[in-house]
Amino acid sequence: MATGKNAFNADAAKLRVNRYRKRILEVSQQVQALHIGSAYSCTEIVDVVYNGLMRHGEAGGTRDIFLMSKGHGCMIQYAILEERGTLTRAEMNGYCTPTGRLGCHPDHGNPGIEAATGALGHGLAMAVGMALAERGRKRDTIVYTVLSDGELQEGSTWEATLMASSFGVKNLVAFVDNNDFQSLGRTSQTHPSFYPVVEKYLAFGWESVEVDGHDSAAIHDAVASRKGDKPLMVVAKTTKGKGISYMENVPIWHYRSPNKDEYQQALKELEAAL
């Protein structure tokens, strides 16, 4: 299956993810709630999917699908959709406002959004259904989705995991944004049996690999080099709040927005990262 192998420019990706993080930071100044830590955690993953893997229907060709199963990470999806022109700047600036169309979770019907998510553990089954529909129509569409650690605690996710491989779904590529953080602490401490993840997926009949979830080239290569005869789960080891020193691995940044001083400091850190 064509996934754009060897076409990935890691230097360009570095510039893009820095730009997206700045844009998310900018929007953060308008609202109280943002899930900024969650978006920064999966920034590289979603960027690679949109800008390195997906086919966007160029010249009438295949249009792959992205479904943000961990809906609370949607700010990075919005930032990418804005840059791609799917969302307007005005729509982005209207995020979480009474007259805006974008909320804290992706809503079905909004430009570029394939499904409404937010409640955890729904995305993978919908992605399996989408993949089956595309297969039924003899199309080579690939469905991409990103899950959170918490979603892998939902029984529904494991149902869908069983379905994907049992039904021979090959056109499904999933990522878990494995930042090891949840509301009440580190997953490795609250639920040590959560690990290992890769072995669980292998046992369920998937192809599965672990990568550094902030290494764009590694993420890309993990997908581009897949065998393609099974669904793929990429376990991306990530850092919640990645890129801003005071946000990294600090659970409060799951939800709150930076104040003015924190904003300035974050901006400086992002500038310095280039």
């Binding site: 079905h108 499904a115 259904g129 993949a131 529904s156 379905m163």
Partner: peptide, 23 residues
């Protein structure tokens, strides 16, 4: 291809049906 038995997994039954309808 259009008869899908998820087994005893009703959450998947609805989720997969939703995914099909989304396409």
């Amino acid at each position: 291809e259009r008869f899908i038995n998820v087994g005893v997994a009703e959450q998947s039954m609805i989720g997969i049906a939703a995914g099909l309808a989304l396409r």
